[in-house]
Every structure is written in C-alpha cells, then in structure tokens.
C-alpha cells in the first residue's frame, strides 16, 4: 500500500522541518545528463522531497553503466529518462518528474530550462559540460547552476569540493581527475561528487528561496 501525499509530506517535514520542506516541495530543479552524476543527483533530490525534477538525457541504459548509475539490470536498453522516471516514482510517486528525452545544445537549452530554478550539470563529455555552463551563464543568468569537473579514479574522496565561482554558479569536483586518463569512474567517488551537487542544490533552496515562491 503506497502512502498518501499527506503521509509522505508529513514524514519529510518531520525530518527536515516544515519551513525547509515547504521550500523543497516548491522548488523546480533540472538534472542535465543521467549518468553516474545525474542519476544519483536526481535520487538525492527526490528523496529529499523536491517537488519538481526535470530529467534530461538522450541515451539508453547500458550494462557498462551499472557500476555507478542508479539503474537496474532489467532496465538495460531503456531510455535513461524512462528508467530513472520509474525509479524516482518508486521513491516518491507525488514528485513531479518531467522526462526530456533530447540531446541538449545551445539552441534548445534556453527553452528547455526556462522554467527551472536550479540546474545541475551532470554530463560526462567536457565539451558538452562547457557548452551547457556557458549557455546557462550567458542566456539564463537568473538560474542557479551547479556543475561538476573531476571525479574519476581512486584518488581521495576528500579532494572533491564544491566552490562558488560566481553569484549563482557553483562547481563540484577535484577539477583535475579526467576519465580519459585511464582511471575510470568508480561508484563511490562519482557518488561523492553527485552528492556534493545535490547538497548544494538543497542548501540553495533553503537559503535563497522563499516559502511562498510559485
């Protein structure tokens, strides 16, 4: 038997406090890229009771993803948007999860992200990361943006930090460890970075948002 909206909401409010829970439930977030970073970020946000999460990817679940991404074996071959939608709805069926099954580029980014407040960059390709970040900073300067750079390998988890780069732009990661240098992506370290991004999103929602927003 699935609990009602009110039951889940009050359980969350009991953990987080009524004020924070109200802000979380009104927040509009987007996760761009649903791999090791994005699938974990989205799970964190939905577990925390964020009311709206737009999940964006064009790719399908592959067996090589299972080592660090939230998907299950029987989801191999599904679109990541559909597979993650199922997972998120099992965590909180009342969260508004919007699937956007496209490859983001500088032409479609402004429109797709127009109605979101907090944007998490979670791509793997460095040029796609830079394209999204530049496009959001140039075209959507009112958005909060949390990007990631450097989470590959078995280096110390403590090297992963989140720092504020500009007024509404934050960067998580160690800034250096590149997947192309042969170290690979390990679940634990990728999840540390994803959790940094999700945590910054939740902090910003707490600090910057008003309870009556939208």
């Amino acid at each position: 038997m699935i609990p009602t909206y009110e039951e889940i909401y009050s359980a969350l409010a009991e953990r987080h406090g009524a004020e924070l829970q109200k802000k979380l439930s009104l927040a509009r977030t987007a996760v761009c890229g649903l791999g090791g970073l994005g699938s974990n970020i989205a799970v964190c946000l939905v577990r925390a009771g964020v009311g709206h999460v737009r999940i964006i990817d064009f790719d399908r679940v592959d067996i090589s993803n299972i080592n660090r991404q939230q998907y299950f074996l029987e989801q191999i071959g599904q679109y990541k948007t559909d597979a993650l939608y199922e997972i998120l709805k099992r965590i909180n069926p009342y969260c508004e999860v919007v699937r956007t099954n496209v490859r983001l580029n500088e032409k479609n980014i402004p429109e797709i992200l127009a109605s979101e407040d907090v944007i998490c960059e979670a791509f793997d390709d460095p040029e796609s990361k830079a394209e999204l970040v530049n496009c959001v900073l140039e075209r959507l300067p009112e958005k909060y943006l949390i990007a990631a750079s450097g989470m590959a390998g078995l280096f110390s988890a403590n090297a992963i930090k989140t720092r504020k780069i500009a007024k509404r732009f934050y960067l998580s990661g160690d800034g250096e460890s590149d997947v192309s240098e042969g170290t690979g992506l390990v679940s634990s370290r990728v999840m540390v970075c994803a959790a940094h991004q999700a945590h910054k999103a939740i902090q910003l929602i707490n600090e910057e948002f008003q309870e009556e927003q939208k």
Binding site: L37, D124, P126, K129, A147, G150, A152, D178, V179, L185
Partner: peptide, 9 residues
C-alpha cells in the same frame, strides 16, 4: 577565473 572541465560524469 578560468573553469576547466574534464571528462567523467
């Protein structure tokens, strides 16, 4: 401030 992106995600 130059923010450099490396691969992985």
């Amino acid at each position: 401030e130059i923010v450099r992106f490396v691969g992985g995600g």
